[in-house]
Amino acid sequence: MSSTTGVGRTRARPGAFGFLTDTTLCIGCKACEVACKQWNQLPMDDFGFTGMSYDNTGDLGATTWRHVAFIERIADREGRRPARLQPFQSNWLMLSDVCKHCVNAGCMEACPTGAIIRTEFDTVVIQQDICNGCGYCVPACPFGVPALSPLDGKAHKCTLCYDRLRDGLEPACSKACPTDAIQFGPVHALLDRAKARVAELRAQGVEAHLYGDEALGGTGGIGGLNAFFILTAPPEVYNLPAKPELPQRRVLPGFLTSALAALVLGIATVLAFRREKEGHRA
């Protein structure tokens, strides 16, 4: 974590709503996955075993907008079995992953149809009547969230239950979560709660940190994540990139080097043609 950015800093707009997912409270019941599928009427994924842990969902996808990761930490980084278990959760880490509703969202900036919008709740939603399935948002998300559905050819991801929010209800996943590991609310209030929780965990000797502020996760022009997480291991263990970057940061520099190359090639072409003229006059 860089020392120049304070912990818990975000550029989230006032009035933004989001999630705080506290992995230390998660028991891996998958109620959020089920509630999300039910409310959003998402079709089932293929039945099958991943063969690596109790996680048989595997990944976020077009029909899976919450995904509970199960990480069995039998050995530490050096491959040693720990002599003492963490005080709270054996050595199972669980994280309910979801779209981060980035403050500056790569998916939204990439979308060439304007299908992806920012709502009045500062969440990021794909308008299904606009998306034409170009697929650019899919690799433009630094967290691997949206996916094209083979069922309808369009991109899908968590809407932060936009329909429920409009009706004054909280999202289905946080409503269903039995341990309050998923909490819904105004981003700035959640952030204060998260900072207090991290301090509390640290006082208990747990190496906790916040993923999704401007120091970790919401980095590189992303400006923070409206859905953020409390982690107790490096982000990579949860399949989260430590310091992702907003891909559109590279658009202007890319066009500038291309313009330079075009200029050089143009001059080279003109010179090559001019030499032909002189060469044959002589």
Partner: peptide
């Protein structure tokens, strides 16, 4: 299997590739 969870999530992709 635990070796995979030291540095990444069972070696699964972090991001979604293009189609």
């Amino acid at each position: 299997v635990s070796a995979e969870t030291r540095e990444s999530y069972y070696g699964l992709p972090v991001i979604h590739g293009p189609h």
